[in-house]
Write a protein that binds this DNA or RNA. Structure first.
Length: 613
DNA sequence: CTAGGGTTAG
C-alpha cells in the first residue's frame, strides 16, 4: 500500500535519500521506527487529496504499529486535515480524537485549523480551555499565538484577556509572536489603548506588529494616528510591505486624503511592491472614495486577477459617483468573467440604479439577486425603496416597506419621506413623517426633510409647529463638512467652523467672498431661505457653509486648482454648484468639487444635512 | 505550525 502510494505520487516526489532522523539527539526510537515515521510524514505531506489521505489513514489503523509511530502518524494526519487547503477540519477532529495523548503539536494544529474555517466559532478557545484543564501537554508560545488569533477573529475580548494573563503567568510575554498576536487581538477588539500598551512594551517592533497597530487604528477611525504610526514606522527603519500598505491605503480612503493616497500608490510602484488582490482593491476603493474615479478605474483595469470584492469595490465606486451606466457595465463584465456577485455586489449595483433612477434595470438586478439565492437584507430593501422613491413610485415603495418582513429602518423611511416630498404627497407624507419621528426623534435631518415637505405644499403652520417640536426635543443638526488638502495636510471645515488656526483671516476673506457673490446678483433659493428661517441666519449673508470655508482656504493658500471635497449629495444641491461657479468666475480660479457624499459616516441620530442647503 | 490586509444602502 505504501509503495503503491509512492508510485502514485510520481517520480517528482521521490522519497528523500538523506536520513537526518538517524542522528536525532535524545530519541529512544530505533532507526527503523524513525524511518517509518518519516515515511508516513512524507506521504501525508504529499497527499494530493482527502481520498488518498483516507486510504492512508485506514492503512495506519489496520496495520500493527508501535504506539509511538501510530500516534505520530495520526498527529501528522491531524495537521494535514486541519491546516492544508486540501484538508478537512471535521476529519481533523475525528483523527485527533483517536490519538490517546495528543502532542502539543496536534493541539496547536487543531486550534489553528478550526479558527481559519469560514464560519469561525469559539471552538478553538474551548479547545484551549480543555487543554489547560487537563494540564497535559503544556501549551507553548505557538498555542498562545493561535488562541489569541482565534480570540481576535471572533472578538472574544474576555477570553482574550484571560489568555493574556496566562501568557504573562507562563512566561510567554517575551515572545515577539505572542506580543504581536496580542497587539492584533486588542486592535481587533477595538481596544486601542491596550494594543498600544502591549506595543509600547515591545522591545523589538517588527513589521507585523506595526501593521497590526496601523490596521487597528484604521478600524476605529483614528486615521491621523494610523498615518502617524506609518511615519514612525518608517523612521524606525521598518520597510512596509503589501499588507502594511493595505491598511495605510484604507486610512487614506477613510480620510479622503488623495494626496497621501497617491503618494502611497507611487511608493508601491517605485518599490515594486506586489499589488495583490487586497492591495489592488484597497487602491480602487481609496481613489473612488477620494473622488478620483478615473484613477480607481485605471487601477482596476490593471489588476491581473479580480475577485468578488475587487469587482464590488469598483461597482460601489461608480455607484457613489452617480455613474450608474458604468456601474452596470462593470457588473455585466463581472458576470461575463464568471465571478459570482455576493450581497455586497448587489448593494452596489442596486444603489447605482437608485442614483441613476433606472427602475427597470434595478428591478431586473433584484430578480437576478433572488436567482443567485441571495436573501435580500435591510440594505437591499433600502436600495430598492430608494430607487422606487427617487423615480416617483412612492406608493409602491410604501407597500414594500409595510408588507415585507424587514426591520424598521429610519433611512428607508426617510427615503419614503423624500419621495413623498418630491411628489407632494402630503397625506402619505404625514403618515410616514409621524412614523419616522417616532422611530428616530433625535435626528435633525428628519425634521428638515419633513419641514421641506410642509413648505413644498405651503403648510406653514405645521412647519412652525415642527420647529417648536425640534426645539423642545433639543435637536440640533450636525453640520456638513468639507475639506481641502494643502501640502499633504487635510484641512477639515464644518459648517460655521471656528476651530481652524487661521479662522480670522478666513472669515474676513469669506465676508468679502460673500459680498462679491451677493453683488453678482445671486440670491439664495427656497432651501437657503428655509435654512435661514429655521436657524436664524443673518439676513443677506450667504451662510458659512463648510465648502465656502474650504474654497476660501484654497484660494488663499494655493496657486493650483482648488480641489475640495464635500460631504453632501451635490446632485440634490443645485445651490452649491451655483455658488461655486460664481466664486470660480469672480476669482478666475478653477474649483474642482469632489463629491464625497458617502465618505464620512455619521453616527445614528445625527444629520448629514443633505437637505440643509 | 507561529503574528498583520481589501468591497457594504440612505
Amino acid at each position: 500500500m505504501t509503495s503503491q502510494l509512492v508510485r502514485k505520487l510520481g517520480s517528482a516526489s521521490r522519497f528523500p535519500s538523506d536520513h537526518p532522523w538517524i542522528t536525532r539527539a535524545g530519541s529512544f526510537k530505533n532507526s527503523q521506527e524513525l524511518e517509518e515515521e518519516e515515511r508516513f510524514a512524507f506521504l501525508i505531506r504529499k497527499c494530493p487529496n482527502m481520498r488518498v489521505l483516507r486510504q492512508l489513514h485506514a492503512h495506519i489503523l489496520t496495520r500493527p504499529l508501535p504506539l509511538s509511530t501510530f500516534s505520530f502518524a495520526l498527529s501528522k494526519i491531524t495537521v494535514f486535515c486541519a491546516l492544508s487547503p486540501l484538508g478537512n477540519i471535521d476529519y481533523a477532529r475525528l483523527v485527533f480524537a483517536q490519538i490517546s495523548r495528543p502532542s502539543i503539536f496536534s493541539w496547536n494544529s487543531l486550534i489553528k485549523g478550526c479558527s481559519k474555517i469560514q464560519n469561525p466559532s469559539k471552538e478553538p478557545i474551548a479547545l484551549f480551555q480543555k487543554l489547560t484543564e487537563t494540564g497535559y501537554p503544556v501549551p507553548n508560545s505557538f498555542t498562545m499565538a493561535f488562541v489569541l488569533k482565534a480570540c481576535a477573529i471572533v472578538t472574544a475580548f474576555e477570553e482574550g484577556l484571560q489568555v493574556h494573563s496566562r501568557v504573562l503567568k507562563d512566561g510567554f510575554g517575551s515572545s515577539s509572536f505572542v506580543q504581536t498576536s496580542l497587539v492584533n487581538f486588542y486592535g481587533k477588539c477595538e481596544e486601542i489603548g491596550l494594543a498600544t500598551k502591549v506595543f509600547d512594551e515591545m522591545p523589538d517592533r517588527n513589521l507585523v506588529a506595526w501593521t497590526a497597530m496601523i490596521s487597528g487604528h484604521v478600524r476605529v477611525g483614528a486615521v491621523d494616528e494610523a498615518m502617524g504610526l506609518f511615519r514612525e514606522m518608517q523612521k524606525a527603519g521598518v520597510e512596509p510591505d503589501a499588507v502594511t500598505l493595505v491598511s495605510v491605503v484604507s486610512a487614506c480612503a477613510a480620510a479622503g486624503a488623495l494626496d497621501i493616497g497617491s503618494w502611497v500608490h507611487a511608493y508601491i510602484e517605485k518599490h515594486s511592491v506586489l499589488t495583490d488582490l487586497e492591495l489592488g482593491t484597497a487602491l480602487v476603493d481609496m481613489y473612488a472614495k477620494c473622488g478620483c474615479i478615473e484613477r480607481a478605474k485605471q487601477v482596476f483595469v490593471h489588476m491581473p486577477v479580480r475577485d468578488t470584492r475587487a469587482w464590488s469595490s469598483m461597482i460601489m465606486g461608480f455607484a457613489y459617483h452617480g455613474l450608474s451606466e458604468d456601474a452596470i457595465g462593470v457588473f455585466r463584465q463581472m458576470l461575463e468573467a464568471e465571478v459570482m456577485p455576493d450581497r455586497v455586489t448587489f448593494i452596489g449595483i442596486l444603489s447605482a440604479c437608485a442614483h441613476g433612477g433606472i427602475v427597470s434595470e434595478g428591478l431586473r438586478f433584484w430578480s437576478l439577486m433572488l436567482e443567485c439565492g441571495i436573501e435580500p437584507s435591510v440594505e437591499h430593501y433600502g436600495c430598492i425603496v430608494d430607487l422606487l422613491c427617487r423615480t416617483g413610485l412612492v406608493e409602491e415603495a410604501y407597500r414594500i416597506v409595510t408588507t415585507t418582513n424587514i426591520p424598521s429602518n429610519p433611512a428607508t423611511w426617510r427615503s419614503l419621506l423624500k419621495g413623498c416630498k418630491k411628489k407632494k404627497l402630503s397625506n402619505l407624507g404625514e403618515i410616514v413623517a409621524r412614523y419616522l419621528l417616532q422611530l428616530e426623534p433625535l435626528n435633525a435631518e428628519n425634521y428638515i426633510v419633513i419641514s421641506n415637505l410642509y413648505s413644498s405644499v405651503s403648510q406653514w403652520e405645521k412647519m412652525s409647529e415642527l420647529r417648536k417640536e425640534m426645539k423642545e426635543n433639543d435637536v440640533k443638526p450636525i453640520p456638513g463638512c468639507s475639506s481641502i488638502e494643502v501640502d499633504g495636510v487635510v484641512h477639515e471645515f464644518e459648517m460655521g467652523d471656528q476651530s481652524h488656526p487661521e479662522v480670522k483671516i478666513l472669515r474676513e476673506f469669506m465676508e468679502e467672498m460673500a459680498k462679491r457673490v451677493w453683488d453678482s446678483g445671486y440670491r439664495p433659493s427656497v432651501s437657503d431661505v428655509l435654512h435661514k428661517v429655521m436657524y436664524e441666519e443673518k439676513e443677506g449673508a450667504l451662510g458659512e457653509h463648510s465648502e465656502r470655508f474650504a474654497i476660501a482656504y484654497g484660494l488663499l493658500k494655493t496657486r493650483a486648482p482648488v480641489v475640495i471635497r464635500v460631504v453632501k449629495n451635490l446632485r440634490v444641491c443645485g445651490d452649491c454648484h451655483e455658488v461655486i461657479k460664481i466664486i470660480s468666475k469672480i476669482y478666475e480660479r478653477e474649483i474642482i468639487v469632489r463629491d464625497r457624499v458617502r465618505f464620512h459616516k455619521f453616527v445614528e441620530g445625527t444629520c448629514s444635512c443633505k437637505d440643509y442647503w
